[in-house]
Design a binder for these strands. Structure first.
Lengths: 226, 226
DNA sequence: ACCTGAACACCGTTCAAGT
DNA sequence: ACCTGAACACCGTTCAAGT
């Protein structure tokens, strides 16, 4: 927008996009707290306060990181060839989940801000459109969209909090094993929880995520007709 | 457990419980980042490193805060007189939500750790038992319980992220107004989102929370028979 | 066993100064 | 307009020393 009229002073040494790339790399390598202003600055070989030329504060960096990720989801889901509004919603959600699973350090930032950027709005708009396509009245669609967002972000947050706080999520098999151990430790005190240990293999990963999402959608619109 | 055999040295100046009280008061007054080790220590009038006599690190403080809050939910929900397994699950979830709504600064801590304490286990166990009471097979109950936990924590996290980062949540009417403004700003770019502004009054608060939860439970167990 | 002062390596942000 | 060095007020954690 106001990009064209920068006149005096030297050219910007780096771009906002470069900084966000560096921030995400730091999050991937060091976990949710690794994308400090000072580390981003060090990665760009500028003094810490130079970052404030590009972003007003740390929250703005986080907001931009979230927006950029949501933008990638939007585009990827648009390419999806899934037919039917239920499958399209699932595809949208699965895209978001897999994007975030690749960068779990970014997940806590989702809840730090308001997710009110244009890409967030576009995703919400698409979700509302798909629910309308499913025949939901405006009120049910609005409330249903909110419930779906809550489920998707909650699932992603829980998965990220299960993972070690550094790097990408470990392979699903490893996480399954870790879960199994944790629940076996529940022992006699919580028999149902311990008994559920065998089901846990299905808990983690895309399967459980989609399973729960489908049940929620069924609750919103009724079970799918065969 | 090992409480009895502390022999030499002076009596502990304060208790763990005192420290957790101070930490929660700091969170309430200053938002999610206010419960620093140094501020807790200052509130107890001890040097910062004295905290490490009680907790091994900051994560342990957060874990204890979460466990303590989950314990309060457990007891409060047990007293609930709601009849029927669906209403009992709702009562459990509403209790948890209202406990956390009173201390939104604590919400981010839920996703920082693993929620593997005894009170967390007791809640999960109760949820599994209620789903079994509803006739769900073990596998469906296990997966359904996870989906419900995801929904409840996701809803709480989204509500907390909407709030200003300090103090308790503002009255619901104020939050409704803020939401209305935010969505009106969506304007022409996102017509459905803007059109949903009128529904937003219902989005926030216990009503929307229970509405979505009921839809999820309906998806898990089928709609309630009248 | 509990508590302490002092230090280490961080952190976000601001300010006045340079070009 | 952009970049810089220096500083301010924090932070979690560790260490050696006291009782």
């Amino acid at each position: 927008l106001t990009e064209a009229r920068r006149r005096p002073g030297p050219r910007r040494a780096v771009t906002e996009s470069d900084m966000l790339d560096a921030a995400r790399a730091l999050l991937d390598a060091g976990g949710p707290d690794a994308a400090s202003i000072r580390r981003i600055a060090a990665a760009m070989s500028v003094p810490p306060n130079a970052v404030y030329t590009y972003f007003p504060d740390q929250a703005a960096v986080a907001h931009a990181l979230v927006e950029r990720l949501l933008g990638q989801v939007d585009r990827a889901a648009a390419r999806s060839g899934a037919t039917g509004w239920r499958r399209r919603i699932e595809a949208l959600a699965v895209q978001l989940r897999s994007r975030l699973a690749a960068h779990p350090g970014l997940v806590p930032l989702l809840f730090g801000g308001r997710m009110d950027g244009p890409h967030a709005g576009a995703l919400r708009e698409k979700l509302l459109a798909l629910l309308a396509e499913g025949g939901l009245a405006d009120c049910e669609a609005a409330r249903g969209a909110h419930a779906i967002v809550v489920y998707v972000l909650g699932a992603v947050a829980m998965e990220a909090s299960d993972a070690p706080h550094v790097g990408a999520l470990p392979p699903e098999l490893e996480r399954i094993a870790a879960r199994r151990v944790a629940y076996a430790a529940a022992g006699d005190a919580f028999p149902r929880t311990a008994a559920a240990a065998d089901v846990i293999a299905a808990w983690i990963g895309t399967d459980q995520f989609v399973w729960g999402l489908r049940r929620l959608i069924d609750g919103l619109a009724g079970p799918e007709l065969p």
